[in-house]
């Protein structure tokens, strides 16, 4: 997602083409919810990328079309509440974070359309509930007393798993399964399932696919019990009063199509392309959250 922010800066070029005069002086400060992106890219990678893209590459590219970017940086937040507060104080022009978190903390009228990174156009990101294939865990009921793993600090994954259990066994996952481990990375959960350390776990498809690419035997040893499509793990939206959002959107797509450096940075973050997203994309997650709340209430 950090890349999306950087790419947003790159999109200044298109904006400049349409209205050079008003772009004489500008800034782009991104707020990034770090827990959601450190699995794919380390903080150091993110920092390096940001420095390169926002400060060097973007500034240089913008200058070619007559735009002087006076300030461009990224602010990392490990707490969504703090990031929202900074946003409300006008310190951020753009926010990057998981869709569920954004839908919960930001009102739709505070944001305007932005970008998201797709792992693959044909295979959008999903949450997968996986299990060892040799343990006959083909239904949620079969996980009674089993050992499963979850991504730490990922409310969407937690909500997805809990919803499954609430829906199928009418019980929260906590208490139905034997043990729930929290892991920082989805890839680690895949490995733990493969090496039979846990019986099942919730992972993102992108992580699962990467691990299968690294060792195709994983696909033989692990079954997907259930899944939930989410398009992307992170979304980026501009502030509702940021005047250049539309231009940046156009510029970002073009830059990532043509710039070899932009493609390199996508590879670092295991993404293949950039796609536009709208604020209404968050409605799905809001609805999912509402349904989950209903299920919890019903079980109680």
């Amino acid at each position: 997602m950090a890349i999306l922010c950087i790419l947003s800066i790159v999109s200044n070029r298109c904006l400049a083409e349409t209205d050079t005069a008003i772009w004489a002086k500008t800034r782009l400060i991104m707020g990034i919810y770090s827990p959601s992106i450190t699995e794919n890219a380390s903080l150091s990678d993110l920092e390096i990328s940001m420095n390169f893209w926002a400060k060097d590459f973007m500034t240089e590219e913008a200058r070619k079309i007559g735009i002087e970017i006076t300030e461009s940086r990224a602010a990392l937040f490990d707490n969504m509440q703090d990031m929202h507060a900074a946003f409300q104080q006008g310190e951020l022009d753009m926010v990057v974070g998981p869709p569920l978190m954004l839908s919960r903390f930001f009102k739709s009228d505070e944001l305007q359309d932005g970008f998201t990174a797709l792992v693959s156009e044909n295979r959008p990101e999903s949450l997968l509930f996986i299990a060892r294939s040799d343990k006959a865990l083909h239904s949620i009921e079969a996980f009674k007393g089993k050992h499963i793993a979850l991504i730490d600090n990922d409310e969407l994954a937690t909500m997805f798993l809990d919803s499954l259990f609430l829906k199928h066994v009418r019980q929260p996952v906590q208490g139905f399964v034997g043990q729930i481990d929290k892991q920082q990375k989805a890839s680690r959960i895949v490995l733990d399932v493969y090496f039979n350390k846990v019986d099942g776990g919730v992972v993102y498809r992108s992580a699962f696919d990467v691990m299968v690419d690294l060792n195709p035997d994983i696909a033989n040893k692990i079954d997907i019990v259930d899944q939930y499509p989410i398009k992307s793990r992170n979304f980026s939206f501009f502030s509702h009063n940021y005047p250049y959002a539309k231009h940046l959107s156009t510029l970002a797509s073009g830059a990532f199509q043509s710039s070899p450096r932009a493609k390199q940075i996508l590879e670092v973050f295991k993404a293949s392309e950039i796609a536009a997203c709208t604020v209404s994309d968050l409605d799905v997650f809001e609805q999912f959250y509402q349904r989950y709340q209903v299920l919890k209430t019903q079980v109680k």
Binding site: S187, R188, L191, L214
Partner: peptide
């Protein structure tokens, strides 16, 4: 013998 960690770390 936590091979998951071993693989992850070495990757």
């Amino acid at each position: 013998r936590d091979y998951g960690f071993i693989v992850e770390h070495n990757l």
